[in-house]
Design a protein around this nucleic acid. Structure first.
Lengths: 260, 260
DNA sequence: ACTGATTTGTGCGTATGTATC
DNA sequence: TGATACATACGCACAAATCAG
């Protein structure tokens, strides 16, 4: 399989002999780790599931075996590969598909891919709406909103970190029902929202803060996908504004153009 | 404006006094640069357009002023902010919206946002299809494809780096017409494709290789948005498979849920 | 069960870059 | 500016696990 033309590539790497004279501010082992992570993510080792030996890889990158080991041990800690003494290094997992459709339901998607979904409630509180949140929910400044933060998992691996804001006036008992472990869709239905649709998603990328990196169990040097979204009810009124951080190492977002 | 809850944050930074015991593999000045870049991108300074003084920032991050200056000078070189002696540091630009619709036409979108589009042809050649490309274009292994690589700009700033593959058999004269400076849409029309639609987009994030970072004029430590896409004609036959790398510092992808 | 080749795991010493004081 | 602490990267040597014959 041919690598994408502009993807990280062995010969993108500093010349094997002379050290780089440009200071990137990123250490050699970190760049090797990212290169390998990218290759694994690009399924370059998908056929056998086995990576080249430490000797081969260190020769390829032109570094000491210790340096290479530091890189792969970071990837191992991150759950991206598995090392077996005397045998070799093996790919651990592939990318999870996360569809961004008008009707996005998390658990269904995972189950369809044969994965066990999990969700952890991190925060649930009432607060005055920040300017951005008020604008997205079409509220007046000073209105209260309900903030719900969750960590979603698939097979025990963190997938995303979601912050959702709901208009407090409209959804009075939401926080209490969440505390009792009810599903979001079900709660909204009980509060009079029979159905809701995703109106818009804005997708950006960023590096995780320490907190996000820790919760998503991902290297702080590996990027996240960030999705800002607005869900509306059937009358078009905003129901929820959300900011979701996806682990870029584990997830790819899918946009299917629906048949009109 | 309140920052997103999990976005990079001053106190996500290593404690001001004790050095961090976790090895991130990224130097302090680089992390400060990335933190500031993220904040600028998150519009934290959008109201005044002015950043805090060097003294304030170095105090906030708990580093020497020299270290901070190295960070901001990197951002300046990258075109993200502008330093004026005796006045301060100012935000240079904001995010560009890039819609991912069924019918995506680059120039139109930019002009609607009041920007001047530009496109540079980097590569145009015929090659045997890699496994992945053949699968996406529904070709037999060994078939030839036409590879077209371009660099798109808005107001002179690089926006994306696109690789596109077309079935060689179907689109014979494509490379020649491209050499004459014709538009892609127009060429396809001349070759019998009256219209084409985006069937699917897969969105991931990755760090740029050296080549990509250079072409997109972006730090190698700042992430990219990567979009894999398949365009089909009105009969549903694949016309183009593309891999596009967007500068994560300059672009956000927009997914509008179309009314059915 | 043994041998040799391959692969990962570990220890030590040294030099250099980074950041602080 | 110089001194100090620490992380990074290199080189060499050897131990431990695995596998093919």
């Amino acid at each position: 399989m041919t690598p994408p033309t502009f993807a990280p590539h062995p010969f993108d790497f500093p010349a094997p002999v002379a050290p780089p004279h440009v200071r990137s501010g990123v250490t050699v082992w970190r760049r090797i780790a990212d290169t390998l992570a990218g290759e694994i993510r690009d399924r370059r080792y998908a056929d056998t599931g086995k990576l080249p030996s430490e000797a081969e890889l260190s020769a390829r990158f032109g570094v000491n075996r210790h340096t290479l080991r530091q890189a792969v041990s970071a990837l191992q800690a991150q759950g991206m590969l598995r090392i077996e003494q005397g045998r070799g290094m093996f790919v651990q997992h592939e990318l999870l598909n996360y569809p961004l459709a008008r009707r996005t339901r998390f658990s269904e998607n995972l189950q369809r891919q044969g994965l066990l979904p999990g969700k952890q409630l991190l925060t649930a509180r009432c607060e005055p709406a920040a300017e951005r949140v008020a604008r997205e929910l079409e509220l007046a400044g000073g209105d209260d909103v309900l903030l719900v933060e969750t960590l979603s998992e698939a097979n025990g691996q963190p997938v995303n970190l979601a912050s959702a804001w709901y208009p407090a006036e409209r959804f009075g008992g939401l926080l209490e029902m969440l505390g009792e472990g009810a599903q979001t869709t079900e709660i909204l239905a009980r509060l009079g929202v029979r159905d809701y649709l995703r109106r818009e998603s804005r997708i950006t990328t960023q590096l995780p803060g320490e907190e996000a990196a820790r919760l998503l169990r991902q290297s702080a040097a590996r990027p996240l996908l960030c999705v800002e979204s607005v869900d509306v009810d059937l009358e078009g009124r905003p129901v929820k504004y959300g900011e979701t951080l996806f682990s870029g190492d584990r997830v790819q977002l899918l946009v299917r153009s629906e048949d009109a």
